[in-house]
């Protein structure tokens, strides 16, 4: 238990500090960002589009039930999307796609003794493997998440038009009325936090992988589960903290 905590802290500390220390491996950073983007862009976009449709339908159901009118649906739906769904769904998808991919990659390196080979070459495996992933994941998740939020809103706008009959300008003005600048700031902070924990947890389990085919599988599984739980838990904490600033 204590050893695991120690190892986790080590990964966090060395991983973060090494970002600011030479040698800067710009190419690796770029590679990881593009890995995050290319692996999950399509999936994220499709998923948030469908989520947008569902959000509108659900919001209109509840609004009609409570206040007998769905005039407020665009405002409420866009608040829910920006504050909650856009970021969480993006993060969970990145966690399972990219996080699992990283965990499998590091675990395969571990069991084929590549990590030990790095150590012999006097390359710190945490600096070499984790730091670029942190940079890539934080920036990648942020960019992808913001894009996902925008696409989710656009999709929601079309659905409101088709389903509820409110014209697009109404949706936009309602969204402007409800959504404030701090919502965007908080959404960005959330996304960056989620982006930060994905590589940490993925690499943590990757480094701990035991040998054999089962080793890679169980490392990847544990990483996926822990990342999802961590994202939901952090989402709760952040929502709670941010709610005091409105």
């Amino acid at each position: 238990m204590l050893a695991s905590v120690n190892q986790l802290l080590q990964i966090v500390a060395i991983g973060v500090l090494s970002i600011f220390r030479p040698p800067y491996r710009w190419k690796n950073y770029l590679r990881e960002i593009s890995f995050v983007g290319s692996e999950s862009f399509l999936v994220v976009i499709i998923c948030v589009s469908f989520a947008a449709i569902v959000t509108i339908i659900e919001a209109s159901y509840h609004m009609t039930l409570v206040v007998q009118s769905d005039a407020m649906v665009p405002g409420f739906a866009s608040l829910l999307i920006i504050r909650e769904l856009g970021s969480v769904i993006t993060a969970l998808l990145i966690g399972s796609r990219v996080g699992a991919g990283w965990a499998a990659e590091v675990a395969s390196m571990k069991i084929s003794e590549q990590i030990d080979a790095l150590k012999l070459l006097r390359i710190d495996p945490i600096k070499y493997l984790v730091s670029p992933k942190i940079v890539g994941s934080v920036l990648g998740t942020l960019l992808l998440g913001l894009a996902a939020n925008i696409i989710c809103l656009i999709c929601a706008m079309f659905v409101t038009k088709l389903k509820l009959g409110y014209p697009m300008p109404t949706f936009i003005s309602m969204t402007k009325l409800f959504v404030e600048v701090q919502d965007l700031v908080f959404a960005s902070l959330k996304l960056m936090t989620f982006g930060f924990v994905v590589p940490i947890i993925a690499c943590f389990y990757g480094f701990r992988a035991k040998s054999g085919a089962e080793g890679v599988g169980s490392a990847t599984t544990q990483a996926v589960v822990s990342i999802s739980v961590a994202i939901i838990f952090l989402d709760f904490v952040l929502s709670y903290v941010f709610s005091h600033f409105y």
Binding site: S96, R97, A100, G101, A103, A104, E105, A107, S108, I111, G212, A213, E214, G215, V216, G217, T220, T221, V224
Partner: peptide, 11 residues
């Protein structure tokens, strides 16, 4: 395939 295939299946 090998151990990698298991990781790929999980992802």
């Amino acid at each position: 395939g090998g151990a990698k295939a298991v990781g790929k299946a999980v992802v």
